[in-house]
């Protein structure tokens, strides 16, 4: 029984297919990164998970149940925080606690969690964007949910706030909560997510662990003459595992073979001026997958 399971989830607006047969699975206790460029269908998918938008076809199951029956275990912050500007942060949470049917004592607990207790008595309308964002996360945590859906939770936060939010998400993950995190901050996702799903054009184009998606490290060799070096290395490791990029060789081989490659090139009279391991960042993978840049 997965916290989130969608099958062939589709949303059409007239001719536009906003979400196209997305089947994703979020496993218990994991922090799942949900990535995609603007307009890829991330928020529409998240809205369907919460029953705010009805799917054109396909199914959503949260903890094995239909959406309408299972939101008791779900907390969410979708597309930015939204509260009543004339109420204080604390009173906004009190109102929401009544809807959620959770004890009023939770309000103080979640305000502490997001470090907003000092300003909780101020009107929401006077909050900075970062404070609004933290109140949004506090609201998502009100029910002490098993599944937390966070859509761009670090928007508007300063670097310290972003670091705090990362720590909070990690802590929630470590406490056994499942977190579905949509974010543009790929460095952040790389740091805190166990698995990621990448959507583009409404379709889920990749779903894997962060490590698998980034792939193995590559060997980078700067040599002279570069074409001779490329020919020599291709003969050694295979044609398709060698690329010439920005005047250097990118070798898709284990880092442990660096010394052997160096010896072979030097033995062939080729000057090697630089030899190093290059790890692909999640951002590189994301841009490749979504054909951006």
């Amino acid at each position: 029984m997965f916290p989130v399971e969608t099958r062939e989830l589709t949303k059409r607006y007239g001719q536009l297919v906003a979400v196209d047969r997305v089947s994703l699975t979020v496993r218990p206790g994991e922090v799942y990164g949900f990535l995609g460029p603007n307009g890829a269908g991330k928020t529409t998918t998240l809205r369907m998970l919460l029953g705010l938008v009805r799917p054109s076809s396909g199914t959503v199951r949260l903890f094995g149940e239909d959406v309408g029956q299972s939101l008791g275990d779900v907390g969410a912050l979708i597309e930015g925080p939204a509260f009543y500007p004339y109420l204080s942060g604390r009173d906004n949470l009190r109102v929401l606690a009544r809807y959620a049917g959770c004890p009023a004592g939770r309000v103080g607990v979640v305000l502490d969690l997001v470090d907003l207790t000092d300003r909780a008595g101020d009107r929401y309308g006077t909050y900075s964007l970062g404070m609004k964002q933290r109140l949004g996360v506090a609201a998502a945590l009100l029910k002490d949910p098993k599944l937390l859906i966070l859509d761009e939770p670090t928007n508007g936060l300063d670097p310290a706030g972003m670091a705090d939010m990362r720590r909070l998400i990690r802590r929630l993950g470590a406490a056994g909560k499942t977190v579905l995190l949509s974010s543009h901050m790929l460095g952040e996702v790389q740091q805190i997510c166990d698995r990621v799903g990448v959507v583009s054009g409404g379709r889920l184009i990749a779903e894997s662990t962060v490590a698998e998606l980034r792939g193995g490290a590559r060997l980078r060799v700067v040599a002279d003459p570069i074409q001779d070096a490329a020919a020599r290395v291709r003969a050694l490791v295979g044609q398709d595992r060698v690329r010439v990029e920005d005047g250097a060789l990118e070798l898709d081989i284990e880092a442990g073979k660096a010394a052997w490659i160096n010896a072979e090139l030097v033995g062939a009279g080729i000057d090697v001026s630089e030899l190093g391991v290059r790890e692909r960042e999640l951002e590189d993978v994301f841009l490749e997958l979504t054909h951006v840049g």
Binding site: G72, V74, I78, L96, A140, L142, K143
Partner: peptide, 8 residues
């Protein structure tokens, strides 16, 4: 969305 995310 804020209200409905609380479950009612």
């Amino acid at each position: 969305k804020t209200l409905l995310a609380q479950g009612p």
